[in-house]
């Protein structure tokens, strides 16, 4: 018995050791590139060339950040992205709630029509050029609106939210009705306060999506002053391969030294763009946890 127990203990320890090693390796494989980029962005070009694989910076050099924050285009695009993300996230939340809530209520008529209508948008889209023509028809070219309006009512978000609302105990809403609450009152005072997990999810989806998008600007915006920061970052990061492609083997046009930003400059730009949206996660984390609990307690 004791032997068996001991050997099982040994086995467990071995399994645990392997598991820990695997998990540590996995975590490192994710952390290392991030640390590497952060360290390189804080190094001079010479130190970078000497040791491109560094984990910690050997000698600090903030000049790359100086150039990044001195770039007018990057700063203006940063402002654009903050505005687009804030407006877009707010509108997304508003539109999703007012579309999803009626679809979750049992007494609303024509629900199949409205749910089908939104699911269709999930399966089919108009394509780039019709979308462009639509935007032009609406007079939205060269605006912030063109960059967030198309995504404010997403089918996926709606379905998530409808399901969440449906899972909410009907008794809560009935009780509120008994007490004379109107639908808007029920929605804003009872349903929404209990829906923080799904609201946090939608905020996260919307904010990350809007923060990271650049393609709508490629299509709908012809004014550099309205570029989002991801587009500027893309230009910086892809400069070298874009130039290589564009030059068509013509080395003189591959104006390396003047046109292509140094590596550590690209990394600094990457960190500056990546950091804010990464910082959102910890603040929304707790709602996800409570969301899991909410589902578990029901019944």
């Amino acid at each position: 018995m004791a032997m068996a127990g001991k050997s099982r203990g040994k086995g467990d320890a071995a399994v645990a050791a392997v598991t820990y090693a695997a998990v540590t390796g996995f975590v490192l494989s994710i952390l290392y590139p991030l640390f590497n980029i952060a360290s390189l962005s804080l190094s001079s070009y010479a130190t970078y060339i000497k040791n491109p694989m560094m984990f910690f910076p050997t000698e600090l050099d903030f000049s790359a950040y100086g150039i990044v924050f001195g770039s007018k285009l990057l700063l203006s695009s940063y402002k654009n992205t903050v505005i687009i993300t804030a407006l877009g996230t707010g509108l997304t939340l508003f539109m999703t709630v007012i579309y999803a809530y009626p679809l979750s209520r049992p007494q609303v008529r024509f629900k199949p029509f409205f749910s089908t209508a939104i699911v269709i948008t999930m399966l089919f889209s108009g394509g780039i050029i019709p979308s462009f023509l639509l935007m032009r028809g609406l007079g939205l070219l060269n605006t912030y609106a063109a960059q967030y309006l198309p995504t404010v009512l997403g089918a996926y978000n709606c379905i998530l939210m409808v399901n969440f609302f449906k899972a909410m105990p009907e008794e809560l809403i009935e009780a509120a009705m008994m007490d004379g609450a109107s639908e808007p009152y029920i929605l804003t005072r009872i349903v929404l306060p209990l829906s923080r997990p799904i609201l946090a999810t939608i905020v996260l989806f919307a904010a990350v999506g809007l923060w990271n998008q650049y393609f709508s600007a490629v299509i709908y915006v012809r004014d550099q002053a309205k570029w989002p920061v991801q587009l500027v970052l893309r230009e910086i990061l892809l400069a070298s391969s874009t130039e290589a492609l564009r030059s068509g083997g013509n080395l003189a046009e591959l104006n390396a030294a003047r046109r292509i930003p140094m590596e550590q400059l690209r990394y600094a730009a990457l960190i500056v763009v990546m950091l804010p949206i990464t910082c959102i996660y910890p603040f929304l984390q707790k709602y996800f946890a409570s969301g899991v609990m909410l589902g578990a307690v029901k019944g």
Binding site: I129, F132, L133, Y214, V218, I219, D223, E235, L238
Partner: peptide, 20 residues
């Protein structure tokens, strides 16, 4: 009036502009 398009996606921008 400069319409500065992103270099990394110029072909897309050009195609949409010409098609529109």
């Amino acid at each position: 009036e400069l319409q500065n398009m992103p270099s990394s996606s110029y072909e897309e921008s050009l195609t949409v502009m010409m098609a529109s």
